[in-house]
């Protein structure tokens, strides 16, 4: 039986590990290490290889969720992890200084994969001062030439992670 692989990416601290923990049936496999740079003021640990979680479908088939490291220096892991993937979830953190730049960076780096598959964007931590409007995020997505889904989410909630996956598979099924 074939296995299905979904990839979750986004900047450090956006909640990739949390999202996988929220929906995975098994305790997620993590490769967290201590942060030694500026990020240590935000979080003590960061993913350096991948996170991994799984969901079992009714007939026993597995859906694997892979979380990438967020930092650009781990770009090589992005390329390894997307191999054979069905689609991409990008999580963005609006409490970071330039969330639109973050989105553009991931869209550019995963452009080949997105072109072949699909993407959904989850926007998190929108409660701070002056987060960009949804329209501004959509403008970034327009560079792909397609209208992809985008939702404000609380990634700690299983329902919200399920919403992103549902939107992604709907895109793959109906608009690819």
């Amino acid at each position: 039986m074939s296995e299905v692989k979904l990839i979750i990416t986004g900047p450090p601290g956006a909640g990739k590990t949390t999202a996988i923990a929220a929906i995975s049936e098994t305790p997620p496999v993590r490769t967290d290490t201590r942060t030694t740079d500026d990020l240590s003021s935000v979080k003590e640990e960061t993913t350096v290889a991948m996170d991994f979680g799984e969901i079992t479908l009714g007939d026993g088939q597995k859906v694997f969720l892979y979380g990438t490291p967020g930092q650009k220096r781990f770009e090589f892991m992005w390329k390894i992890l997307v191999e054979g993937g069905l689609g991409l979830i990008i999580l963005l953190d609006c409490s970071r200084p330039e969330p639109l730049d973050d989105l553009n960076m991931y869209l550019e780096n995963f452009s080949d994969f997105i072109e072949k598959t699909g993407v959904v964007v989850g926007i998190t931590r929108t409660g701070g001062a002056n987060p960009p409007e949804m329209g501004a995020f959509y403008e970034c997505l327009e560079s792909t030439g397609r209208t992809f889904p985008m939702f404000e989410v609380d990634i700690r909630e299983r329902e919200d992670v399920a919403l992103l996956i549902d939107a992604l598979i709907s895109t793959l099924e109906f608009s690819h």
């Binding site: 490769t31 201590r34 740079d37 220096r73 781990f74 090589f76």
Partner: peptide, 29 residues
């Protein structure tokens, strides 16, 4: 451990920053 280069001595030209990130990934794995 999170992939930044700190010190090196290379007799060949190799990308220290890229290798640093890779080494942290592989050790964590």
């Amino acid at each position: 451990v999170d992939g930044h280069d700190v010190a090196k001595n290379f007799r060949k030209d190799m990308p220290a920053s890229k290798l640093s990130a890779m080494m942290s990934s592989i050790l964590a794995l």
